[in-house]
Design a protein around this nucleic acid. Structure first.
Lengths: 214, 214
DNA sequence: GCCTCAACGGACGATCTCGTCCGCTTGCCA
DNA sequence: TGGCAAGCGGACGAGATCGTCCGTTGAGGC
């Protein structure tokens, strides 16, 4: 790859993050190109689709999410691991503007290519949850899919209120406290059964569709 | 108003709900008109802006949300009232497809016209929270803005996963349990201080902007 | 230093959506 | 029943975005 091509690629990614943060991930491709100081053709040459650009722009964040699950499993105390996992992912969503939208966009459908690593992540999460329950810190009726529910809800919150880190922190605190085992609570409704499809808890986990808001 | 005009208006509202549910509230106006079996001009005559159409389509839901706060205040037990409030609003978001997006769209900025009734709602909510805390059921560090946080987060969840009522119910249950006063929990981060601006907890509360996703 | 081709840029046609304009239709009152 | 104005429909021009095509440029191997 020629030096100028590499340079332009980096410029495009930085411009994409800036533009997505400011105008949302539906911002015109031409805006990103202009911000990067290149022509549209160059943008399309490097990233043939908007999805490829989004994926490229937030690749680092996706990877961080992916590592977070591994770190959580490796932690001495499973509850601490789970807590760190939730806080890491939520902090990322809070801090990188366009990321929550990319995260949500990535969620609903993902190519089957990454099915293998997703299944692994799924198993890891199950193990983490079981261990945390066995340690007595996590409530016994917690279901792995509850983590997905929590992350998607938090994601929706920061997408709606990107200027309010306090709201995010507050929600995370409430959720983590309600996950904690406590003596006598009312039974929960049945778990949602959501899987990790597309959730970037695995390093490759990225999205494919570009759904409109519902 | 002529009979055919009234009929068309109703048709348009029904079509709008159907189309918004299926394609999101950004669906082309022409699609709504076609679904209603009328021309675009008729649509624009009845609803000059997309916002007016959205507002009209979900007016009943907005009103229900508005009443819910009054009902909560009137309830014998304030905790029961608060619980009903949250469950009513969340059930509405869960059941009417396009409503969560409309709700979120309505949120960030609202005309100052309704400032008065919003302030009233704000006061009502504060009273409700104080009463529930005095009764011992609501945790003392709960802040009225936490209700906004919870509703927006739930809204984001159902907007992202409109086909999964179980996820919604699960989140609501976790949140309500974490709001409940319990002996010894870690201190929460500072409250977000969000207000009810635009949240349709007051009968007139509707939105004005059409923000893109962030 | 020269030459070649990878890489560039921006114009352009296609597509989509918006909101208005204007001639026609029809409900309703006298 | 007749007339008229409220109401209707669809064509249309403006504006925005997409993604491609093609002539030009300059990076890097020799």
């Amino acid at each position: 790859m020629r030096a100028d091509a590499r340079r332009n690629r980096e410029r495009l990614l930085a411009a994409a993050r800036a533009v997505f943060a400011e105008h949302g991930i539906d911002a015109p491709m031409a805006t990103v190109a202009r911000r990067a100081g290149v022509g549209v053709a160059t943008l399309y040459r490097h990233f043939p689709t908007r999805e490829a650009l989004v994926r490229g722009a937030f690749a680092r964040q996706m990877e961080t999410c992916g590592r977070a699950l591994g770190d959580a499993l490796a932690a001495d105390d499973p509850w601490t691991g789970l807590t760190h996992l939730v806080e890491t992912v939520c902090a990322l969503q809070r801090e990188e503007r366009g990321f929550p939208a990319a995260f949500l966009d990535a969620f609903p459908e993902t190519r089957e290519e990454h099915a293998r690593s997703r299944e692994q992540a799924e198993r890891d999460l199950t193990v983490l949850v079981r261990r945390a329950q066995a340690s007595g810190a996590l409530r016994p009726d917690f279901h792995p899919s509850d983590l997905v529910v929590a992350l998607v809800a938090h994601c929706g919150l920061v997408a709606a209120l990107p200027d309010d880190p306090r709201a995010s922190r507050r929600l995370v605190a409430y959720l983590l406290q309600s996950f904690r085992a406590a003596p006598p609570t009312a039974p929960l409704p049945p778990p949602s059964g959501l899987t990790l499809r597309g959730l970037p808890l695995t390093p490759e986990g990225g999205g494919s569709r570009t759904p409109r808001r519902s």
